[in-house]
Write a protein that binds this DNA or RNA. Structure first.
Lengths: 236, 236
DNA sequence: CCAAAAGTGTTTAGCATACACCCATGT
DNA sequence: ACATGGGTGTATGCTAAACACTTTTGG
């Protein structure tokens, strides 16, 4: 081995940095993640997250957008945010590679062209994944679930306009449990996250009242419930 | 260099990685952060966060603990968690250094020995800080504030046992606004975060009822309010 | 006996969930 | 008409903030 690792002496091994993105979307009531299949060792044929080496002149946010553009049309991404650093010295073999992981979201109505080696996979029911990428996917899923409850992040999963029952299915799929349409509409409306589009759409093939269309009032991330408790005093 | 990456070719510049910690505590009703004064250029005499280069054989969590041990007795730290990556290519001059930032907490009752160049500074009223360290400190403060409202992270600011009025002052200082003792006790008790120690302590010099001592039921981070809304259905 | 500080009881209000009921359409 | 799905009204319950009141001490 190279160095007597008391104080942080960097060894000969290069300390490279990569960015990785867990891009999620919902299709057919399932949460999916974008993966590509490796054609080289190590982890030949395993499925991996898109990403790559951090360039010298870019920050990690710029880098992940650039790297993703090779797999998916970046303009289709409705939201990207930093997740966490994964830095186990042996997270990838043979080299020392620190990863900054990101969560990316794609609305359910767009269907970006994908390279031949790239596919969507259900998050519950992943194929064999490369390195520590499964842990990153699960971190991304948990972040999305948490933010659905205290922010307007649903905008990133939904099309520009949608019915409440469509939105209910998106939330149910992402959260992994049944959400009631009534409450969803009321919670989001009260918070000013949702607004009526004023139009309705035709009823389904079996009849039924034609549903009204709604949209998110903002398509930027906003925290709608910053204080669960210990709110600042009303008179301050 | 090593490999011709397509877009964004890595330049000759080394892509180094450092860890930085914003260690916070509360003293005299103020939130403070641990900083050391630089003795070299760049940013001579500016105040900087403790940290340093990531070693070849350690992950970032191990590294930050090791680096901190040079400034402060690590056993005094009650909590450490990852914050975010700071990666602007020019965040430090002359080299390319990506930083993983951490939040650290020290209970208010311990007073670790500090090196001569190191001091506690109030977070509102920072001295001239080096590089992007001020932004990191503010990120740490915001993370602490958020977690106080939905987790038991108060344990990391408080001594093993304390009175409710002492705890009230800790929360008020961290949050930046007046917290009512009555509600604080009730919220934390209902959640099972707080429990009575069974003992009381002497009253103050001006009389008054002698306060009871309390403690946190757990000294590990626990999320106490995971779903602000959209809770899973009661019958599922 | 009074002031001071701690702790409890009670009121009020807001918010979320659940559920009953009404509405509008296709067949 | 009636089945089907959409939407609203309303009851219930929980939580927390605010404040009045009681408790226990020192002077």
């Amino acid at each position: 081995m190279h160095h007597p690792s008391t104080a942080a002496a960097d060894g000969d091994r290069d300390t490279g940095h990569e960015v990785l993105a867990a891009v999620l979307r919902i299709r057919e009531d399932r949460l999916q993640v974008l993966l590509w299949q490796r054609a080289q060792t190590p982890d030949l044929h395993s499925w991996a997250l898109p990403g790559g080496r951090l360039g010298a002149a870019e920050d990690v946010e710029t880098s992940v957008t650039r790297q993703l553009s090779e797999k998916v049309d970046v303009h289709k991404l409705s939201h990207v945010e930093q997740l966490s650093v994964f830095s186990d010295p042996h997270r990838v073999p043979a080299q020392r590679l620190v990863a900054t992981a990101f969560l990316g979201l794609v609305p359910c109505d767009v269907d970006p062209e994908l390279p031949a080696d790239t596919r969507w996979h259900p998050v519950d029911g992943l194929p064999t994944t490369a390195f520590d990428h499964e842990a990153i996917v699960l971190t991304a899923r948990d972040r999305l679930r948490a933010k659905l409850s205290y922010s307007n992040i649903g905008f990133a999963l939904a099309p520009p306009e949608f019915t409440v029952s469509k939105l209910r299915r998106l939330y149910s799929a992402a959260l992994g449990y049944r959400v009631a349409a009534t409450n969803l509409q009321r919670v989001l409306s009260r918070r000013g996250v949702l607004e009526a589009a004023g139009r309705t759409v035709a009823a389904g093939p079996n009849g039924g009242r034609p549903p009204a269309l709604f949209r998110f009032t903002s398509r930027d991330l906003r925290i709608t419930d910053p204080f669960a408790v210990l709110r600042p005093p009303h008179q301050a």
